[in-house]
Design a protein around this nucleic acid. Structure first.
Lengths: 113, 113
DNA sequence: CCGAAAGTACGTCAGCTGTCAAACTTCGAT
DNA sequence: ATCGAAGTTTGACAGCTGACGTACTTTCGG
């Protein structure tokens, strides 16, 4: 029995890749999807962590889970639980260091609106 | 008979969209492909117009044509003929104005190498 | 203890798109 | 006139992926 398996709460902490190991390819594949860009945009604009449920998305819950997963794998967000809610945090500074100017450039839609 | 049909050379000038009418979505769909990013990178690094044939690509000619087409439609390159060669020009300044910082951010792979 | 809430995991399916080969067009050179 | 070089066009096809529903898990409140 591993340390992670001893605690239900720890089990629910998903793996987060080191942003420096992530390729631009992976990042672009993540942000090319409009729903995922919507998520990133909401987090960017909010300036604080948001639960999955508080971000209105035009897709089903299972699809939303998929999108959050892709964003996490691409190093764009960090996820952790608070009760039954899964919180999402934009990994802004880390990401900016690895891909300077990219996040900002992607927010052009939001800034125009 | 239209003006365009009177001259073979004019027929071969493909349509170029106004960069300001292009969505970020379309741009991302263009640059998410690694072959297309390679093309943009070569033009970016070369600093001058290049014929399709002078850019070595790991795909067949017909596939290459497809990629150039997508880049043109996304407002990233301008194409014109010189003899049988089709020249490609990066629309750098126009593009930067419409999507500030994006092109630069996408060149992170090249700058690391 | 039980039910509701919030997500997750899984299987499926449809649509998109990157790929190629083959046939064609255009232009320059011989 | 012909041939070759350089691309284009046109299908066809395979693989990916975004979408969903359903069943499941975990946590909190009553």
């Amino acid at each position: 029995m591993t340390a992670a398996r001893r605690s239900g709460q720890q089990d629910r902490v998903p793996p987060h890749p080191d942003v420096r190991t992530i390729s631009l390819q992976q990042v672009l594949e993540a942000v090319v999807d409009p729903v995922r860009r919507l998520i990133v945009g909401e987090l960017y604009a909010a300036g604080e962590d948001l639960a999955c449920g508080t971000i209105e998305l035009p897709v089903s819950k299972s699809t939303a889970t998929h999108h959050f997963h892709v964003l996490r794998e691409a190093g764009l967000i960090r996820q952790y639980y608070v009760g039954t809610s899964r919180m999402n945090a934009l990994r802004r500074e880390e990401f900016d260091e690895a891909f300077p100017g990219l996040l900002r450039a992607l927010m052009v839609e939001r800034e125009r609106a």
